[in-house]
Simulated assay, not measured.
Amino acid sequence: MKSYRKELWFTVPSRRGFLNITRDAQASLDASGIREGLCLVNAMHITASVFINDDESGLHHDYEVWLEKLAPHEPVSGYRHNVGEDNADAHMKRQIMGREVVVAVTEGRLDLGTWEQIFYGEFDGRRKKRVLVKIIGE
């Protein structure tokens, strides 16, 4: 069995945003030479997420509204974690959206469903953060 590790780096210029990273994950798979196995993609920061869903702007807007209702940024003073910080909501949003995804690798391709894409979700942006791609297989 072979393994491959790649770090992807992203800087989202706003506080929150979603980036489609499916091509980045597939490029990592291509570089690995692995044809059958599993591909793990995970956020390496506690205020960011990796998830799978549809690449549709209305859905992304709905996520933004929904997440803000569940864990609003303001008032910052409403969170105990925010003593000296202002990102408690980002930690909670990450918890909801998840840390990582695992995708089957079949014949050298990410074995995603018809509309499935891999996304990086940023909830406390404006600085460089990384995503780990770890692929194992043959």
Results as ranks from 00 to 15, higher is better:
L59R: 03
W66A: 09
L67A: 00
E7V: 07
R99M: 05
D30N: 13
F18E: 02
D54M: 07
K128Q: 15
I34G: 00
Y4R: 01
G33F: 04
V12L: 10
R16C: 11
K128I: 10
F10R: 09
Q117I: 00
H45T: 03
S32V: 04
F51Y: 07
D124G: 08
G108K: 09
S77N: 12
T114H: 13
G125E: 03
G84F: 10
I34S: 00
E56Y: 11
A43S: 15
S14Q: 14
R80Y: 12
D54C: 07
H91D: 04
K128P: 10
K128N: 14
V131Q: 07
A31K: 08
R127M: 05
N82E: 04
T11E: 15
E107G: 12
F18W: 06
G137F: 03
D124R: 08
V12A: 01
V41D: 01
K6G: 00
N53S: 12
L112R: 02
I52F: 01
I46N: 12
E56N: 08
D89V: 01
E122T: 03
R94F: 01
E116S: 12
G37M: 08
L67F: 00
L8G: 06
A71P: 06
I118G: 05
Y120E: 08
G108M: 03
R127L: 12
L38I: 12
M92E: 13
V105F: 01
